[in-house]
């Protein structure tokens, strides 16, 4: 096809397309080892995922978005946060794509790039866990849950379960702590919250 003449180009509408798919798919592959380009949309992952009803895109749709290079849609979606990494998709994929590893990589990319998080309450929870780990070296469930409730404001949601757990002494009042907690604090120096 010959190039349009200057007059033609002036009248043609320029169509914005998504960025070329290669860089994004390569980046995710490099981070996760998942061979995303192998996917032919059989939807085994979407059908097997126990959490699919809480997602905005099924896992196979996330793969498709990646193949199309639609970075923003992928990094802002709920799906990557609803995924808990149970690996059902990875074990069912006939093409051997480690979809759970792909989700791992996408969550990290969303955090690092500072995009609007599709399901912010989940990142709030992870932050609370990390606060507890930074302070104690171990997870202290009571302070994690209280911190999480403070962040999300759902004080009265789920109170019955919390009380039952307290009554059965499943929520310890005091944390179990690492003695050399300085070694743990040092590890947190790499954490993005500190570097910003």
């Amino acid at each position: 096809m010959s190039a349009p003449s200057p007059q033609q180009a002036a009248t043609l509408e320029v169509i914005e397309t998504a960025r070329p798919p290669r860089p994004l798919i390569e980046e995710v592959k490099e981070r996760s080892g998942a061979e995303i380009s192998r996917c032919y949309q059989c939807r085994a992952c979407g059908n097997g995922c126990p959490f699919v009803t809480a997602m905005d895109y099924t896992p196979n749709q996330v793969v498709r978005l990646l193949q199309f290079g639609m970075r923003e849609e992928v990094l802002k979606c709920k799906t990557i946060w609803v995924c808990v990494g149970c690996h059902t998709c990875s074990s069912q994929c006939p093409m051997g794509i480690d979809i759970a590893a792909m989700m791992d990589a996408l969550r990290l990319m969303a955090v690092e790039e500072g995009v609007a998080i599709g399901k912010p309450n989940i990142i709030d929870f992870h932050e609370e866990v990390l606060k507890s780990l930074e302070k104690n070296g171990r997870a202290h469930k009571l302070s994690i849950m209280l911190g999480y409730k403070r962040q999300t404001g759902g004080w009265f949601k789920d109170v019955d379960v919390g009380l039952k757990m307290l009554a059965k002494r499943k929520l310890e009042l005091f944390p179990s702590r690492v003695k050399a907690v300085g070694e743990i604090t040092d590890l947190f120096k790499c954490y993005w919250r500190e570097s910003k």
């Binding site: 990494g85 780990l133 790499c190 993005w192």
Partner: peptide
């Protein structure tokens, strides 16, 4: 010993 890192560290850093 300390926490293995769990899903939260895996997710965030």
């Amino acid at each position: 010993w300390n926490c293995c890192g769990s899903s939260s560290a895996q997710t965030m850093c």
